[in-house]
């Protein structure tokens, strides 16, 4: 079975996650022929393949072409990692126009005295980042930033066996061992503020943990490592916009009757960076998905 990887505009973390299969990679390679995989292998071209795996976000016109080429040449197309599944962290660039991004990186952020050299054969930035499945149909998604190696192995194995993918219908709470009680939040705290009880649900203590709104599959690795979930697995099965659900849930669990309860203004003020927190990995695949142009200049 021929398998190809294509890397769009990403950080290569997903490729590293694949390599992190370690000896598991040997088992995988017994079953597949990896014909093309930038970052991992040398070959520059590929023919028709059974499985095509895409990592990275669709940021440039070259990325768009790559996606289309892959769709033509592969029977089964899989997006690996939050960038290709949902747009990922690069999706947050949808809050800015390409012009302002270029200006920031090439004019504002450069050291004094630098000169910009204009080159005509550099891929142009697409106006907005979109998830891969906005451009072409895909057969499977392996979310995560990066997806845990074990998870990648399981999902790929299912696909190699000819089965269709089964992602969990539940959220990270299902896999999280912290003790959960009813939610009545008096105060939203920043991570690191106050004393954290690591045996109890972080959300109940006022920390914004996206586990409630994020698909399960990662075995709540971040919470086990002592940090709240940031939502890299994207929305739960029945949900289209994870950020909207997070906003709804956080607002709903704000306590009403306690003496310390926040009023609506206080709630909004204490939730700093709503977009960056709720849509860290999924802005490009959310309902609004990009900044409206009537907003203030970036």
């Amino acid at each position: 079975m021929k398998v190809v990887f294509e890397s769009l505009s990403g950080c290569a973390g997903c490729e590293i996650a694949v390599l992190d299969l370690h000896e598991g990679l040997l088992d995988l390679l017994k079953r597949v022929e990896l014909t093309y995989a930038p970052i991992i292998l040398d070959p520059r071209t590929f023919d028709r393949s059974e499985i095509g795996i895409i990592t990275g976000s669709v940021r440039t016109d070259e990325d768009v072409e790559k996606v289309k080429a892959l769709r033509e040449k592969c029977t089964t197309l899989v997006t690996l990692g939050s960038c290709s599944c949902f747009g990922g962290v690069p999706g947050l660039a949808n809050l800015f126009s390409p012009e302002s991004i270029v200006k920031q990186s090439h004019e504002v952020n450069v050291a004094p005295g630098s000169k910009i050299v204009e080159k005509k054969d550099i891929p142009r930035l697409e106006h907005w980042i979109v998830p891969v499945d906005d451009l072409v149909n895909i057969e499977a998604k392996i979310p995560g930033c990066p997806p845990p190696p074990k998870f990648i192995a399981e999902q790929l194995s299912t696909l190699l066996n000819g089965g269709s993918q089964r992602l969990s219908k539940k959220t990270v709470c299902d896999e999280c061992d912290l003790q959960k009680e009813i939610k009545r939040i008096d105060k939203i705290r920043r991570w690191g503020e106050g004393k954290t009880d690591f045996s109890k649900c972080l959300l109940e203590q006022g920390y914004i943990c996206l586990g409630i709104a994020t698909r399960a599959g990662c075995e709540s690795r971040c919470i086990k490592a002592g940090t709240p979930c940031r939502g890299c697995f994207g929305p739960a099965e029945k949900v289209k916009d994870a950020g909207a659900k997070l906003i709804s849930a956080i607002a709903s669990t704000a306590s009403l009757d306690s003496p310390e309860a926040m009023n609506p203004q206080q709630l909004a003020e204490s939730f700093i960076d709503v977009v960056g927190t709720a849509y860290r990995f999924t802005l490009a695949s959310s309902i609004i998905r990009k900044k409206a142009s009537e907003g203030a200049a970036n």
């Binding site: 950020g243 906003i247 607002a251 704000a254 142009s293 203030a296």
Partner: peptide
């Protein structure tokens, strides 16, 4: 409470 939080998000999204 939801509407207040949503308004903040909408503002950040340029609406």
């Amino acid at each position: 409470r939801r509407v207040h939080l949503l308004k903040k998000m909408l503002g950040d999204m340029g609406f």
